[in-house]
Measured scan of single mutants.
Amino acid sequence: MLDDRARMEAAKKEKVEQILAEFQLQEEDLKKVMRRMQKEMDRGLRLETHEEASVKMLPTYVRSTPEGSEVGDFLSLDLGGTNFRVMLVKVGEGEEGQWSVKTKHQMYSIPEDAMTGTAEMLFDYISECISDFLDKHQMKHKKLPLGFTFSFPVRHEDIDKGILLNWTKGFKASGAEGNNVVGLLRDAIKRRGDFEMDVVAMVNDTVATMISCYYEDHQCEVGMIVGTGCNACYMEEMQNVELVEGDEGRMCVNTEWGAFGDSGELDEFLLEYDRLVDESSANPGQQLYEKLIGGKYMGELVRLVLLRLVDENLLFHGEASEQLRTRGAFETRFVSQVESDTGDRKQIYNILSTLGLRPSTTDCDIVRRACESVSTRAAHMCSAGLAGVINRMRESRSEDVMRITVGVDGSVYKLHPSFKERFHASVRRLTPSCEITFIESEEGSGRGAALVSAVACKKACMLGQ
């Protein structure tokens, strides 16, 4: 009897593995994704193909990295998701002549009506938060230079001027797309009239992360975010950046690689679950690469896999709870928690219980395998993109072996128990001629924006502006 049951459990697990095998990517698959990513990057950089390229390769006008001589107080704003952060950054000489960066910050959550109302409502709310922060720190009387981390696709015309191309991540505030974001912020500050600010720089969160990590390690020339969304930036040779005049030196390019796949480059790798996630998203047909990796989508992918296993009578005796059938019910943090389970399955059992399920031991094991399959594919897909960037940098610099540091931020990278190990191992397999160091950014977005502002202020002083 026991043997029969054991055989049935083994057969069930084997069927589960057959279904989950769809998520496995072979090294040849990853090399294919990497080569296609490089081709799209090239198209994004070139003037004649930029418009139709899915990977936009947006110039950021960040050319210099901090040298350690900029000092002063800077205000930093960070808008990239449902939370908005205001930070005071003091850049100065530390002990023994070292450079020191001290920060104080406060988080504000953005109400739904500000995210989806008008641009005026959104930026009025942001300036209200700045006003509140300055009151708390008794700094209303000071006109501070301000660095703005704005983590949406922007076409820069200068370091302090950028046109919002399109909202992502659930934002829909009308009247912002096609307009200068810094102008919208300046107008809102003017409307309030109770404080003055000098907006000197606007950067993407990947750029802010790279600059913040450069402060720790001067070989950091790539910034990457794996959180709600997924994106990367890197220092490109100016001669390859056709959208900006000049051939000397390097400029940081914001790849906006989340949109890779929007022209069909990933079609052969998309599964039924991916198509369902895409169809029910706020932007169907867009940001397809990001939807395979980002935390906004990972939990939902797992939920759809679990429903398939229920329908195949391989999980929960073929019956799903009402909660499990509800879109968004299986949160991405559950994926991390399930994979963090120590082996007694308590954590998995508790999560499934909150979803109205009474799982068996085998159910718990199957749910864990589903989570591992989805998150491992995410790590491997992400590795193909980064390997594409790094191999490109090595080739354009004609280096036999390139040493490089990548600064990384984002909740999936930082909080998932195995993502970074799987990701690092896969990147290294795909970049055999590179020695890569990964560092995690601390308060990256805010500190990085302030350091970019410090560079901009120093330049302005040198130019006598």
Rank of each mutant, 00 (worst) to 15 (best):
E237G: 02
G356Y: 03
E221A: 10
L357W: 03
L386G: 05
G147M: 06
F419S: 02
R422V: 14
D160G: 11
M37Y: 03
Q337K: 08
R403F: 12
I366V: 06
E96N: 07
M87P: 00
M115D: 07
S453R: 12
S69T: 08
E9Q: 02
D132H: 09
G410M: 14
E312N: 03
K90Q: 02
E339S: 01
L352H: 02
T255C: 13
G299K: 12
Y61D: 00
R327H: 13
C129S: 07
M8S: 14
S109P: 10
W257F: 14
M8I: 15
A6L: 09
K32A: 03
C457V: 14
L165H: 13
W167P: 10
D363W: 02
G410A: 05
P432Q: 12
P66I: 10
A232T: 06
V241W: 02
V367W: 01
L79G: 09
D4Y: 02
P432N: 14
K346D: 10
K13A: 15
C457E: 11
L134M: 10
E9L: 12
S360W: 08
V55S: 02
E112G: 07
V207W: 00
M462F: 13
D409Q: 10
D205N: 03
D3F: 03
F419V: 04
E440R: 06
I130R: 01
V427L: 10
R46L: 14
C382K: 02
E177V: 10
K136D: 10
W257Q: 05
S76Q: 02
V335S: 04
E93F: 14
F123R: 02
L79H: 04
T49I: 03
T362E: 13
V408A: 11
E395A: 12
L134E: 03
V154E: 09
Q106K: 04
A460W: 09
N231E: 12
D78N: 13
T354V: 09
R392A: 10
G356E: 06
Y108T: 04
E196R: 07
D205C: 06
V412G: 08
M402P: 10
C461A: 10
G444K: 13
V241F: 01
L270V: 10
G249T: 01
P59S: 01
G299R: 02
G223P: 00
V226A: 04
S127E: 05
G170R: 11
E236S: 01
H50G: 02
Q239V: 10
L288C: 15
K190V: 14
K161P: 15
E95T: 06
V207G: 03
G261S: 03
R186Y: 11
S340I: 09
V455M: 14
L58Y: 12
I366H: 06
T65R: 05
I189A: 03
Q38S: 07
R250G: 05
A10R: 15
A387P: 00
S64L: 10
H105C: 08
A173N: 05
V101D: 00
Q286W: 12
M202R: 05
I351N: 04
V89Q: 03
I293A: 13
D4A: 08
T255R: 00
F419C: 02
E52D: 07
W167D: 14
I225Y: 02
V452D: 05
D187N: 02
L2N: 03
T354H: 11
R377T: 00
G175N: 05
V16E: 15
G388P: 07
R43M: 12
D124L: 05
L307Q: 08
S263Q: 03
I110W: 07
E319Q: 15
G246V: 03
D344W: 06
C457S: 12
S109V: 11
S69M: 11
G68E: 04
G328Y: 11
F133D: 01
I366W: 04
A320T: 08
K140D: 04
M402C: 08
R327P: 14
D135N: 14
L58A: 11
T255W: 01
G68A: 06
M8Q: 09
F330K: 00
K143F: 02
N204H: 07
D78T: 06
E52F: 14
K414N: 12
P145I: 00
D124Y: 07
M210Q: 09
D187V: 01
G94N: 06
S321I: 10
D262W: 08
F152K: 14
D344A: 02
E322M: 12
E331L: 15
C213R: 11
F148A: 13
F23S: 12
R35G: 15
D365R: 03
T342S: 03
E443V: 07
E268G: 04
V241M: 01
E216D: 06
V222H: 00
E312M: 15
D363K: 00
T255P: 14
F148N: 02
I19S: 15
V71I: 04
V154G: 07
A449R: 09
A320W: 14
S127F: 00
C252H: 00
K32I: 05
Q98G: 09
E52C: 15
V226I: 04
K143N: 01
G170Q: 15
L88S: 08
E70F: 07
T168S: 12
E14H: 10
A329Y: 07
R155G: 15
D132A: 03
E272H: 05
R43V: 14
R191D: 01
D113I: 10
A449W: 04
E322G: 11
F316H: 07
L122P: 02
D187E: 09
M197W: 07
Y125M: 13
A454Y: 13
D365I: 05
L77D: 00
F74Q: 01
F171I: 11
N254I: 01
H317C: 05
S54C: 11
L2P: 13
Q26G: 11
T206L: 03
G223R: 00
D267C: 01
K172D: 03
C382P: 02
F150R: 15
F133V: 05
K102D: 05
M251L: 06
G97A: 10
D344T: 02
G97E: 11
K142P: 03
E272D: 04
E319V: 14
E440V: 08
K31Y: 11
M235V: 06
I390T: 01
D158H: 10
V277K: 10
A329R: 15
K104R: 05
G318V: 08
A10L: 15
A384N: 01
K346R: 07
W257L: 10
D365Q: 14
E242N: 01
K56A: 07
G264S: 13
R429M: 15
T362R: 09
K31D: 08
H424F: 03
A21E: 15
M402L: 08
A454M: 15
K458E: 10
E96A: 11
V71C: 04
G117S: 06
N231K: 08
V408C: 07
M235K: 01
E96I: 10
Q347S: 07
G97T: 12
S109W: 10
E48T: 15
L134A: 06
Y297H: 09
K136N: 07
D135R: 06
K296C: 13
D205F: 06
T437A: 08
K39C: 03
T228A: 04
S131F: 08
G448W: 06
E40F: 04
Q323W: 12
L355I: 03
S76I: 02
S212Q: 01
T116D: 14
E421A: 11
G261C: 06
N166C: 13
V241L: 05
K13R: 08
E256L: 14
F152Q: 08
V154W: 11
D262G: 08
V89K: 01
V86P: 02
S375P: 03
D198Q: 02
T326H: 03
E51K: 15
C371W: 03
K169Y: 12
E95A: 09
D217H: 10
D4S: 14
M235F: 01
G407T: 06
R327Q: 14
Q286P: 08
E248Y: 10
Y413D: 08
S151M: 11
E322Y: 08
R275I: 15
E22G: 00
V408F: 05
C233L: 00
A10C: 15
E395Y: 14
F330T: 09
S441E: 03
L309F: 14
Y125D: 13
R368P: 02
I390Y: 02
L122G: 07
L301S: 12
E268Q: 02
G388Y: 06
E435W: 13
L164P: 15
S340D: 05
K296R: 09
